[in-house]
């Protein structure tokens, strides 16, 4: 892990950090990556990937409507809204 990788990681997670704190963060992350490296040493080729630790499958519901909308309350709980919409910073591609 170097500074460029960390910058990318911070960008992907939308986390802000001061450049002077980078060495400290890199040190901390190294322990995490060390653990991942250790796990990577295990030979798991003969095993099916585990997709969920619960011994449970086929949780589903019938396709029937159950309205739990509360537009006013939902809009009010966001940082900014008007009568009809959630209002967010300008995003145009």
């Amino acid at each position: 892990m170097d500074k460029i990788e960390l910058k990318n990681l911070l960008f992907l997670a939308r986390i802000g950090a001061k450049e002077e704190d980078y060495p400290k963060i890199i040190e901390k992350l190294k322990t995490t990556f060390g653990m991942i490296d250790q796990m990577n040493e295990l030979d798991l080729d003969h095993l099916e990937p585990l997709n969920n630790p619960l011994e449970l499958t086929n949780v589903s519901r019938t396709d029937s409507e159950h309205n739990r909308n509360n537009k006013k309350e939902f809009l009010a709980s966001s940082p900014k809204s008007d009568e009809n919409f959630f209002v967010v910073p300008r995003i145009v591609e």
């Binding site: 519901r61 029937s64 409507e65 159950h66 739990r68 909308n69 939902f74 009809n84």
Partner: peptide, 27 residues
């Protein structure tokens, strides 16, 4: 064309008043 959304029981329909077919799950 299901009646409801993939993971929530809100109605799946085009052209309704904005933000009225929303569930806690969709939020």
């Amino acid at each position: 064309t299901t009646n409801t959304k993939l993971f929530s029981p809100s109605r799946n329909q085009f052209g309704e008043e904005a933000n009225t077919l929303v569930d806690l799950i969709d939020l």
